[in-house]
């Protein structure tokens, strides 16, 4: 099933990815094939029950509430454009 243009555009919006026209065309084709492969799972007819997962832990295995010294600010920011100990972000448009 070919994926629709507006679906791929929506996915690009959710993913914060830009494609030029040719790129979008190409990825649409690829995504269509991939989704065909994914669609095979639709014929599997069991339903998911999250209470049956066996990955839960006991309450007592959570972390005790003890504050520890934080990290040096400059080390945290060593990979970022920063000023006055803050990350620099272009203006957010609302």
């Amino acid at each position: 099933m070919a994926i629709e243009l507006k679906t791929i555009q929506h996915l690009c919006e959710l993913s914060k990815l830009n494609y030029d026209e040719a790129g979008l065309e190409k990825v649409m084709g690829e995504m269509s094939d991939i989704i065909d492969l994914m669609d095979e799972i639709k014929s599997f007819d069991l339903t998911y029950d999250d209470t049956k997962d066996n990955n839960s832990i006991k309450f007592c295995d959570t972390r005790e509430d003890v504050a520890q010294p934080s990290f040096p600010t400059e080390k945290l920011l060593q990979n970022a454009e920063n000023t006055d100990g803050c990350y620099v972000v272009p203006k957010v448009v609302e």
Partner: peptide
């Protein structure tokens, strides 16, 4: 990333992501 967001996005979640968890 596109595929992952497809599987999670509103309207597709049950058909894909939840189904995968069932599997």
């Amino acid at each position: 990333i596109l595929l992952g967001n497809y599987a999670l996005s509103s309207g597709y979640y049950d058909a894909y992501y939840k189904k995968a968890l069932a599997l």
